[in-house]
Design a protein around this nucleic acid. Structure first.
Lengths: 156, 156
DNA sequence: AAGAGATATATGAAAATGCATATGATAACC
DNA sequence: GGTTATCATATGCATTTTCATATATCTCTT
């Protein structure tokens, strides 16, 4: 067979639809890039993104219920339930049956959990620097404002 | 037990860490909100987000390889490989073994697949309106520019 | 043209996820 | 006070994803 007949398939017709001007897609793509970056950083520390989110939410203020973690950590309740069980076994956190209302379970970081958070936090915060490289302080503020505004639009 | 002792657990100490000013988290949260919204819209049409992304990427320009879809649709290659197989069985798309290079597989939408895309696209595009409600035209442009800029920072 | 290396896709097995529902506990109502 | 409704959490099961690796095809070298 002649060499010239071998080729990598082309990229189609050039596209009658575009994504570059479709904001939800840009956001999904950016979040995905950030996620991959996060997963890789965490992998080196032997932890996955789900656990990191749980640690981070608890570090933000523990003694909260499973339900509250669900909302803040962007996880399904069932996934969270299982993750918490394992993390409790490994002594990263404690679960206490609700003091006044037995339906609730309060979750607390242990010292071990808090130490792990502190270690990871250093690594993870660098991601923000990369994301915002070349941004002036006002531009950073504008970025935060925009995200909050978009978030409100979707929440409302 | 006295009623006053029953209570919903409080929200902890108020938070020594915060997320509201941590841009990667805001982005992840926003993307998650959008994702949930997308999943629900698609569910009514009997399709999941993975398949929607594949359809959308192909509608943007088909005749591309599995690898190219992987990058654009934010999926793992193995997951994509399986999804494509099922979608081919259901006649949403065709896979053609590379014309010049047998390693490649070129993927094309069928008429059925294109029709499905068109139906869903109408529904999905409305999400952008909700996201950008209350934004002036310049603000919309600024939002797009910001996202592209952040994306470049993460890609580079 | 045979072998080594590179590239693209597929697949087996394990883990994670999502969905529906079960369990356990409290609150509300009559 | 006992039944029903409500809420938080756990769990069974099916599906999906991920990781590692296999398979197939091509390229390059000699």
């Amino acid at each position: 067979m002649r060499k010239s007949t071998r080729r990598k398939p082309s990229r189609g017709d050039g596209g009658r639809e575009r994504f570059d001007d479709f904001l939800p897609h840009l956001i999904a793509r950016l979040a995905y890039q950030l996620h991959l970056d996060l997963v890789e950083k965490l992998r080196q520390e032997g932890i996955n993104a789900t656990r990191w989110r749980i640690l981070a939410v608890l570090a933000m203020g523990d003694g909260i219920t499973v339900n509250e973690i669900t909302a803040r950590a962007m996880l399904q309740q069932s996934a969270l339930s299982r993750a918490l069980m394992k993390m409790e076994q490994e002594r990263y956190l404690r679960r206490v049956s609700g003091v006044g209302d037995g339906r609730y379970v309060e979750v607390f970081l242990t010292d071990k959990g808090r130490a792990l958070f502190n270690t990871l936090n250093i690594v993870v915060r660098r991601r923000q620097d990369r994301l915002l490289q070349g941004f002036s302080q006002p531009e950073r503020q504008a970025a935060l404002r925009l995200m909050r505004r978009l978030g409100r639009n979707m929440a409302g």
